[in-house]
Structure formats: C-alpha cells, structure tokens
Amino acid sequence: MSPRLTVDGLCLDVPAGGRATRRLLDDVTFSVPAGEVFTVLGPSGSGKSSLLRCLDRLNEPTAGRVLISGQDMRDLPVREVRRRVGMVFQQPALFPGTIADNVLYGPRVRAEEPADADAFVGDLLARVGLPPDWTGHSTRDLSGGEAQRIALARALANGPQILLLDEPTAALDRNASARIEHLLVEMGSATDLTLVWVTHDLDQARRIGHSGLILVDGRVVEQGSLTTLLADPEAEVARLFVAGDLDSGPAAT
C-alpha cells in the first residue's frame, strides 16, 4: 500500500525581480504513512512554510511530485486536493460571523451542509476541547488559543486525510501552546489522520513527532526518526541547528 503522503524531488522557484528566480525548495523528498506525525524542522527562512503551501497546492511546485495515497496531486481537481489536505496556519484568520459559520465553511462552499448542523459543529468543538454549545458565539473576543482551536475544528470539518500544521502554537502563550500541542498529539494517535507539523521549536519536536526532517536553505539536510535525528545528526549544518547555533526564530517564510 502506498504511503498517505509522498513528496518526490519537490522544487519551488519564486520570482526575485526581473527574470531572476530564487530557489525556495530544492529536491525535497520524503514520505509519511497514514496516522503518523511527521515533523518539519528548520531555521526561519529555510522554506518550511513554502513546503506546506506546496502540499496544499497554494503554491505551484516548479518541479517534482506530491502523491496523496499514491495519487498525483495534479491529477485531482485542486479543490479535491484541498479537501483531502487540511491546513492550519500560524495565525487562525477566522472569518467574521459565528463559530458555526467558521466550522461549517468547508461543507457550505461545497453545498454539503450537514442536516443536523448544530450537532455536527458541537461534535467538532468537543473534539478540539471547546464547549459544544459555543456554536452561535461570535468569533470576536476569542483568546488566541480558542481561535486556533476553531481554526482546527474548521479544518477537521472537511474530513481531511492529511492535516498540515504551520507553526500552530507559535503565536500562542506558553500555556495555550502546551494545551493545543497536547490536543494535536492525542488526535494524531487516536485517528489515522496524518499530520505534517512545521515547527522551529526543537523541544516541541521531541515531544510530538515520530519521524521528520531538517530543512536548511530549502534542502533536506537530515531525515529519519526524530530520536536519532535530534540526538545525533550527521550533517554539519544539522548539528549546528540542533545545537541552537542557527537562527531559529518563528518568522514566517
């Protein structure tokens, strides 16, 4: 059986003024089985966010392939890709309106709103650790952690097979960050959802992932099981990163 997600020789060039281009991702290759948490590590500006954006086809790779359960992403309609591959950004970017408006957004744009919408939203809110009766609440006045939980519930409402997490806890205070991290790890182990989790935080990576890779300047410098990856990296630049000697701020890329 093919892995849930396969990335094969992925490259991404972006315009850099005039005819020049800048390579953000260079020959990135990895695969993730169903139900695993895969961690993407790297210093800021290393291309982690660009990689995730390519996996949701928000950016168009210059070369290489992305396979979802063995199927080339380019052979699927783009909206089908984005339904199967959910994404949670560093900033929740909730829509104005109620919590239910946000959670039901995905089903509604496909004209597939569930008959019992209240129960559907309530279930998802419970899954992300919020009171199920918050359905009708406005999205204003939510804390950062609550907003991120809504963003997660909104992504889960599409029933994705793969969930991309772009520094999902980086904008939160320590307490909220720990609780969201716990929630995501639990969800990862309780379902067969595949998580691709971008973080710059090595301690977080130690707690969450099964396997992963380290990205520096758009190249994979180290790849494998997280325990060996973080304990004894082979590449010099990976050793520097793990030792904290490369800049590892949370800046968006």
């Binding site: 994404m87 970017a93 744009v109």
Partner: peptide, 20 residues
C-alpha cells in the same frame, strides 16, 4: 491575504474566497 488563503485551503473556489 490570510483570510482568502484560509478559505482556499478549506477548498473554497476563488470566487467564494474573495466574495466578501
């Protein structure tokens, strides 16, 4: 930009994502 891309990532069409 963030809101529009959040909508696209939820499988909205461009016209749905930019409607507001």
């Amino acid at each position: 930009r963030r809101t529009i891309e959040a909508a696209l990532a939820l499988a909205a069409s461009p016209s749905q994502a930019t409607r507001p």
